[in-house]
Write a protein that binds this DNA or RNA. Structure first.
Lengths: 197, 197
DNA sequence: GTCTATATGAAGATAGAC
DNA sequence: GTCTATCTTCATATAGAC
């Protein structure tokens, strides 16, 4: 299958960050999930990392750079999953592979995925950066298939929202990862009219 | 059907606000949806309302009071819908009534509902206020029914996330309200195994 | 009920020593 | 690479005049 929306593919580069930078990114991700991006200050990130604000600024010039690094590191797994799915031999196989990986990612990293997917600052920033838009378009292409009818698009939107929203819902917070994955998979198959395998 | 989780019911009071206060609330709601709660300052709310910051503080003592007013006004329709549903003659009828109203609310007020449902500051604040917790418990009771199995809870969580998340998804932004409502209703019936009527 | 003016603190960001 | 110290701007919030 073809990759990306254009001729050249815009890749994320989650491997470009040093060990120190990754410590900052992990602290920021946790705080973003707890307080939202706007509700998280550089002072909070510095404290959680165990360094001063100035040290954080030495690693990242602006808060936006931290946000991009957080998104890049967190979405690396999604990109890998897309690579595999696009190498699949059929559309149906690609979709099944991708669904499994996306559900796993959404469940295992529930709180973080939800924060990244719903924070207004993050949404705005990512929408201004081609590699992220490209990634999302690849995702929707595989899930929707070639013929994106209104019904298909709504179903994909519901799935996407469910993966990023239902996983942190109060009604399911006490469910373990495996149970939640199994239930999400069943519901996804029901929505998409897929066989139970 | 019985109302609330306890003996006395904790009601929202959307009617307690004056005309001036409602102007502030509407401006705040719009800004919350655009920038998130943490990303919205009282200065921004004052500017959007057309008054000074001090005038806003005369109406609401703190930012939290504005947040509560915004939630109260926006959720009034949900409370009305719950009242009707709980007066229904059967559980199935109650659920069908409520689903229709909740879908209508989520679609017609997509951006605002999404903001209120997913903002970390708003979530934290509402979780500390009984009337809102009570409202949510009533909602889940009707949707889940009496026997809340794991499967039921996951389905309800997915529906809830879908109503508050899918409706603002990039894949469906260009759909008009009626189309989106119809598609959401079909998918909800599919998830819950309800007949197409 | 709204205004101007202000207090106090914390935000993002930088300079320069070590 | 990290620190202390500082700059500027903006945050929430209040005092008091009209």
């Amino acid at each position: 299958m073809s990759r990306g929306s254009g001729t050249t593919q815009l890749r994320l580069r989650a491997d470009r960050y040093s060990a120190v930078q990754l410590r900052i990114v992990r602290a920021a991700l946790e705080l973003f999930a707890l307080h939202g991006v706007s509700g998280t200050s550089l002072q909070m990130i510095a404290d959680a990392t165990g360094v001063t604000k100035a040290a954080v600024y030495h690693q990242f010039k602006t808060k936006e750079e931290i946000m991009l690094a957080v998104a890049e590191v967190e979405l690396a797994r999604l990109e890998t999953a897309l690579d595999s799915a696009e190498d699949a031999t059929s559309d149906a196989h690609a979709r099944a592979l991708l669904l499994e990986e996306v559900i796993g990612l959404a469940v295992e990293r529930r709180r973080w995925v939800h924060a990244l997917q719903n924070d207004p600052s993050m949404i705005r920033l990512l929408s201004e950066h081609e590699p992220f838009l490209d990634l999302m378009n690849r995702l929707y292409s595989v899930l929707n298939g070639e013929d994106a009818t209104t019904e298909t698009r709504v179903r994909t939107a519901i799935l996407s929202a469910a993966f990023g929203g239902a996983v942190v819902h109060p009604l399911v917070v006490d469910l373990d990862d495996e149970t939640l994955k199994a239930e999400l998979t069943r519901t996804a198959r029901r929505i998409f009219d897929l066989p139970d395998e």
